[in-house]
């Protein structure tokens, strides 16, 4: 197990190096010179040269690359070249907890909706409830998250005035201010995931209910609710673990878009604003941090399999 973990972590280091290298060289292939664009107003080529020197862009490519790797390893992503020039690491450190809050809340919202929906759907197979859940799940899967976000704002912020339309408040400012700002974006990113989970739980629950041990439990006269909650449900939930990696991917991809709808300055908004402003140090930093999150999360999910289902062993 620990040998496997070490191998996975080494693999992760290689992936990160590959991503860092790709990002470095690809961003330097970008057409259009951001430094020229920045001094375009003054129209002064000498000023652009000064800036290039200040950012070390006059050095040969391999020198820049080595210096970049060294800095990235120290958690130094350079300074934002747009506006205030604050360190990218600081921007990311502020954005990270927002994205994490949103992603985790989205995850829990999805589970709270999906688990009962999937179970009821399986227990009431081929009834109106079951068909209803299926239709809603298909709609949820087909709805663009940013559109759902807009609809939620129209209804709950613009019309009913129940919730704030945009912004983010940190959790240490109190639970309700935090929750009221995040609930709509969390539902927007959680919905496609909830749809997938509900359908998965339905089919796995149907399989479990046919299994021998459930039949035995039933024939020895076990109470129905005990049978469902203590025997069938835990086993029906195992497959959900297998889609956790996909879940994280879905939720993070959703957060990138939805943060922009709700003006939450998380990693997604930082990344997109960086791209729109051609603020390359910011884009670079955001891509690297988002990548680290994915790679580590994938490992974490694989580790969780072994905890939840001890039959799985990694060599």
């Amino acid at each position: 197990m620990s040998a496997y973990l070490i191998r996975r972590l080494l693999g992760a280091v290689v992936v990160m190096w590959a991503v860092a290298t790709l990002v470095f060289f690809m961003l330097r292939m970008v057409p259009g010179d951001p430094f020229l664009a920045m001094v375009f107003d003054t129209g002064d080529p000498a000023a652009a040269d000064d800036m290039r020197r200040a950012f070390g862009l006059d050095k040969p490519m391999y020198v820049q690359y080595l210096k970049y790797l060294q800095q990235v390893l120290q958690g130094n992503f350079g300074n934002s070249i747009y506006g205030s020039g604050i360190p990218v690491s600081q921007i990311i450190a502020e954005a990270f907890p927002r994205t994490m809050s949103l992603t985790l809340l989205g995850f829990f919202m999805a589970l709270i909706i999906a688990i009962p929906a999937g179970l009821i759907s399986a227990l009431k197979k081929h009834t109106a409830i079951d068909h209803g859940v299926t239709v809603v799940a298909f709609l949820g899967l087909s709805m663009p998250d940013f559109w759902l976000a807009i609809l939620l704002i129209i209804v709950f912020a613009a019309q009913l005035h129940w919730l704030p339309a945009i912004g983010y408040v940190a959790l240490d400012q109190g639970f309700w201010p935090w929750f009221s700002h995040l609930i709509m974006p969390a539902i927007a990113i959680g919905t496609p995931f909830a749809a997938i989970i509900a359908r998965m739980i339905r089919s796995s629950m149907l399989e479990v209910l046919k299994a021998d041990y459930v039949q035995v439990a039933r024939s020895k006269g076990l109470k129905h609710s005990y049978l469902i909650f203590m025997h069938a449900m835990p086993n029906a939930l195992i497959p959900v673990i297998t889609v956790m990696g996909i879940a994280l991917a879905l939720l993070m991809a959703g957060a990138v878009v939805v943060e922009n709808v709700f003006a939450i300055k998380g990693l997604g908004r930082v990344l997109i604003q960086g791209i729109l402003n051609r603020d390359y140090p910011v884009v670079q930093g955001a891509i690297l941090v988002v990548s680290v999150i994915f790679v580590l999360a994938n490992i974490l999910v694989d580790m969780m399999y072994t905890v939840i289902d001890p039959r799985i062993r990694y060599q």
Binding site: V30, A249, A253, I275, S291
Partner: peptide, 21 residues
Amino acid sequence: IDLQWAFPNFIIAVYLVAVFG
């Protein structure tokens, strides 16, 4: 393929648009 598999398709598309324009 494994490298690409570690990331959601949409995020990769965003990365690439950042590069290509």
